[in-house]
């Protein structure tokens, strides 16, 4: 196995573990409760999910309406699926199926 690859993977993997686990193990969320940190942390979740959604659809945005159609139907199906079932899993599946079906229909 390539030694450079292994070193890079181990360094990046160790940092990932530290970023994900240490703040939980140290319970940094308990610090300064009631202050600005609490408001920062409570907004982090919605901000992160909004950011990840926007970042994930940005590459698919195009002025070409036909090529944009799968994205439109996919998003509409997620919205419809959520309103109908209030289930994250079913809304996600509805979006993916609608997106794939639209790609199939427009060829």
């Amino acid at each position: 196995m390539n030694a450079d690859l292994l070193i890079v993977a181990l360094l990046a993997g160790a940092a990932n573990w530290a970023f994900r686990a240490l703040p939980i193990l140290l319970r940094t969320d308990r610090m300064a409760l009631g202050g600005w940190l609490e408001r920062f942390l409570s907004a982090t979740g919605p901000a992160a999910i909004a950011t990840l959604f926007v970042a994930s659809i940005l590459p698919a945005l195009t002025p070409d309406l036909i090529r944009l159609l799968p994205l439109i139907t996919g998003i509409s199906a997620v919205l419809g699926g959520w309103l109908a079932t209030r289930s994250v899993a079913l809304a996600t599946l509805a979006g993916a199926i609608a997106h794939g079906a639209t790609v199939w229909m427009i060829g």
């Binding site: 999910i49 959604f53 996919g74 998003i75 919205l79 899993a89 979006g95 993916a96 997106h99």
Partner: peptide, 12 residues
């Protein structure tokens, strides 16, 4: 499209 759909559903 599964991941964008999941992010949107989670956002909702």
């Amino acid at each position: 499209f599964m991941l964008p759909a999941l992010f949107l559903a989670l956002l909702l």
